[in-house]
């Protein structure tokens, strides 16, 4: 009995220590006011003052910072722009990732571990270095432009780096494995005889793909989309390195609140709202996973 209780308790303690407690701290900061102090916000919880201190502490918390977020169009524009960039790059990642997964799943079985390795291989290098390499590839005098000039396809170097295009390339490149792997997992399990059955019943290869392969890989597609969308929404490194200054993303706004304005309370409020936005897809994702598990049984 005790053992079972401990087993159940461990994941909850984990969640409590690594998610709930930090989140509550962030919520608390988001309800505070900025101050020139160390740490730079008020009020501080002083347990030595006892109950009255605690009361005093809570009386100083308010929702002012959240109201502030509504006062400037910067914030909702940044959220919206992040949502747009995340959604659009998820779509591109799907369009690029699906054929790759499909090719992997249709490759001869002795090739598959190698192909899988090639997909995972980039993870062995630092993410930062890989994004930096893209700067080298996409820059004005970079590899891509040199190559295109050499082939004679273009006569003036293309401006890709520091544009939204570069951000999309960066996000798609970085998160591609997260799209490929779950889709590949569903496609690999796909019974070839289902496709033969579809053809046998009058489908061309293409309609068999649409009517059988795509619906059956739906769990993988949904999982992949969430795995790309959720981190892309809060992405900070890729837009700051590859994107121009016009690429407005909430991660960057958050960084500026925290580091440039030293306004930890507003930065925390931005983070809390971001989390609330993310909770919706995360819950949907969980539902999807659960549904799949039930269907699998």
């Amino acid at each position: 009995m005790l053992r079972r209780l401990t087993l159940i308790l461990i994941p909850y303690l984990w969640l409590l220590a690594l998610f709930l407690v930090p989140f509550l701290i962030v919520v608390k900061i988001s309800l505070s006011d900025v101050a020139l102090a160390r740490p730079p916000y008020m009020p501080q919880l002083d347990l030595a003052a006892g109950l009255s201190g605690l009361k005093d502490f809570f009386s100083q918390l308010d929702l002012e910072n959240f109201w502030f977020l509504t006062s400037d169009d910067l914030y909702w524009k940044a959220y919206l722009s992040s949502l747009k960039i995340a959604a659009f790059s998820t779509l591109i990642t799907l369009l690029v990732g699906f054929p790759i997964s499909y090719a992997m799943a249709s490759a001869r079985s002795e090739w598959r571990p190698t192909l899988m390795m090639l997909v995972i291989l980039p993870f062995w290098t630092s993410f930062l270095i890989r994004v930096y390499s893209w700067m080298g590839i996409l820059s004005q005098n970079g590899l891509l432009n040199s190559f295109l000039l050499w082939t004679g396809l273009i006569h003036e170097p293309l401006t890709i780096l520091n544009t939204p295009t570069a951000v999309y390339i960066g996000i798609v490149y970085t998160y591609l494995p997260f799209m490929i792997l779950p889709i590949y997992a569903t496609l690999e399990k796909l019974d070839i005889s289902l496709l033969e059955a579809a053809e046998d019943l009058g489908c061309s290869r293409l309609t068999a793909f649409w009517l059988v392969t795509v619906p059956l890989s739906k769990p993988g597609i949904i999982a992949g989309c969430f795995l790309v969308f959720i981190p892309a929404l809060g992405e900070f490194v890729i837009p700051s390195l590859l994107g121009g200054s016009r690429t407005l993303m909430i991660g960057k706004v958050l960084w500026e609140e925290f580091f440039n304005n030293r306004d930890w309370p507003v930065a925390s409020a931005v983070a809390v709202v971001l989390l609330l936005i993310l909770i919706i897809p995360i819950i949907l994702f969980q539902r999807n996973e659960q549904k799949n598990r039930e269907a699998g049984q």
Binding site: D72, D73, L74, K77, A78, S245, R246, T247, L248, V253, E256, N260, N261, D263
Partner: peptide
């Protein structure tokens, strides 16, 4: 805050 906001506006147009 005014400065940062102005800077964001200059950079991103928002």
């Amino acid at each position: 805050r005014n400065l940062t906001r102005m800077w964001t506006k200059v950079k991103s147009g928002t």
